[in-house]
Amino acid sequence: MSQYNTLGFVGLGVMGEPMCKNLVLKSGHPVHVYDMNAEAAARVAQAGGIAEKSAQAVAEKADVVFLSLPSIAQVEEVVRELLAAPHKPSIIVDMSTSDVARTRKLAQEVNAAGVGYVDAPVARTAEAARKGTLLITVGGSEADFAELKPLLGCMGSDVMHCGELGNGQMLKILNNIMVFMTVDALSEVITIGRRAGMDAEKLLQLLSQGSADSFVLRNHGMKSLAKDQFPEKVFPTVYAIKDAALALSLASEGGFQPRIAQYAYDMLCKTRDAGFVQNYHPAVIQLIDGRAKVDAASLEA
């Protein structure tokens, strides 16, 4: 069991809300929650959470605070709000997808205030967040990982220790850029197959039986690409662009200029500019196969 008896959660978006609900329902501990969207906080309160009026109010009552926020900019802002509270939490766990270098720098600031810090970003889908079957990649000390694993296990079925702080972010970022590159490859294969007269669903079903099989083929490929279904509120293109940019930044810091990852980023930007801003990111196939094009006039505007 974890030593942390009172929990906090800030950020109740598409992923954060179901994650927090699982923490409320499974942890056996009180969970104090905050989000700028009062309706989201109210829904979690209906499940048993305790809605607070600010992130600082959460810090006042929680031993550990989990964050699920859009980017490192929001993480930095909320973390400083938590540190400004008269009563600080013992540890902060960032479950957002954040820049590695800025995560490590922020951790130093947090540690200087006498508070622990761990990065634990999540992978997989919103459905996995609802089911509590997320992949959670954790960066931090062995001791912190051991204490937090039972709580993280309320939200994820696969909780992995990836090494020192920042490594959890690194694994998440590289996982996602691999997904984006694979979606592009599948988009090209589907386009070739369709133009040669083969149905996309049949093509992917057959490919899944051989060495070309993968999670991305079965999930993004069969459920989205082959069916031409790109709903909103399911990991939209703008989120994918953010994660792809983080991968390119990580590559640049290492003095490497990737070609395939750069292509994936560029195509996501074109997908956004063609109007698929909030659509599920496999909508990129419509740019790859030529059905959708970027309006030059809209870019100039």
Rank of each mutant, 00 (worst) to 15 (best):
V216M: 08
M95A: 06
K26L: 12
V78W: 00
L248A: 05
D273L: 14
N22W: 09
R259V: 13
A264E: 08
A251V: 08
K293A: 07
E52D: 11
I91Y: 02
L246M: 02
A57N: 05
V65I: 10
N37K: 09
S252N: 10
F230W: 01
A62K: 02
D119T: 07
D243M: 13
A274Y: 07
R291G: 06
E201C: 08
D158Q: 14
A264D: 10
Y117F: 15
R272N: 15
F180E: 04
M155P: 09
K270P: 01
L106K: 08
A40N: 15
D144W: 07
Q56P: 00
A143N: 02
T191R: 04
H220N: 10
A42Q: 06
N37L: 10
V238C: 09
P236A: 13
K105M: 06
N5G: 08
E201W: 07
K293N: 05
N111Q: 15
T125E: 04
A120C: 01
E164Q: 09
L206C: 06
S208H: 13
K242C: 04
A261E: 03
S141P: 03
A101P: 01
Q74V: 00
D266L: 09
N176T: 01
S141V: 02
I241Y: 08
N279W: 00
A85Q: 14
T97F: 08
V294R: 01
D158H: 10
L23I: 09
T191E: 07
V31R: 09
